[in-house]
Nucleic acid binder design. Structure first.
Lengths: 144, 144
DNA sequence: ATTTTTGCAAATCATTTGCATATAT
DNA sequence: ATATATGCAAATGATTTGCAAAAAT
């Protein structure tokens, strides 16, 4: 197992201990396409009898999120989901059928933000943009 | 009390019953600036002894959200907040200090969405954009 | 009169925490 | 050796639900 594991690398880089449970969570995450919820990981860990506690999974998710290798999204349904991502600022397109995600270039968003700032007088500090749609693969598949 | 109450009007228009508790929730909402959480309303209702049940407040919030006179946001902290809004599609700028909100013109966003669609092959169905910053009033006030 | 709403309490769901034990450094 | 991380079970917090009583139509 010498594949790069960016999640684990991020832990190491930030000086956190590389424990078995954390590696296992990183592994659970890396084998997923698109977004997933904490419950997804907890269920899978239970089904595969990995012996990782619920709390540990939540703690790992929080840690990865703090390290910005994971991003927490709020789906329109109100569910909390996570997506692995690069540390740079960016946005996601989330497929509403399969959950697969792609990064969305936020080219042009900056101008819009400036415009809003000018218009409203706010000093804009951050923003979140989430796009939802149907990915190319799902477009070829009859809707569920 | 003949002021227009758009929340109540929306209920009526959609054929829901205009009950005392719903009017009271609409009233609690209308006297707020900016966003608020379900807990805010529940606390206020309790403090003012309005005799409205927790469940009723959640049910009213859900109803108003379905009617699109209220929008549910997910703040960066993970809290769920609501803002009253016009039924048309739009976005908000939320002040991170006082919670006041303004509408953000999404001028220019459409081009960006089209660009992402072209780039990723997704058929974009919807999006959420939330901007956070400091409003003009708070800029004049020393930070908390 | 009938249907929709309500309030309450209990249930559910997601997430967090305390703490003694186990593990990585 | 020592600090950090884990698992468990219990605690918390938010939201939902069942149901008999109350209110709107």
């Amino acid at each position: 197992m010498t594949e790069p594991q960016p999640l684990v690398a991020a832990l190491d880089l930030a000086g956190y201990r590389l424990t078995e449970p954390r590696r296992a969570v990183a592994d659970l995450i890396s084998r997923r396409e698109g977004h997933f919820t904490a419950a997804d990981l907890i269920d899978e860990a239970r089904d595969r009898r990995l012996g990782i506690g619920r709390a540990t999974i939540f703690r790992a998710l929080e840690l990865f999120t703090d390290l910005r290798v994971l991003e927490r999204l709020d789906l329109p349904t109100g569910e909390h989901a996570y997506v692995p991502c690069e540390p740079a600022h960016h946005h996601h397109v989330v497929c509403s059928r399969c959950g697969r995600t792609n990064e969305a270039d936020d080219h042009g968003l900056k101008d819009m933000v400036d415009e809003v700032a000018r218009h409203t007088g706010y000093v804009i500090e951050s923003h979140r943009l989430e796009l939802y749609g149907v990915c190319p693969a799902c477009q070829r598949t009859p809707a569920t």
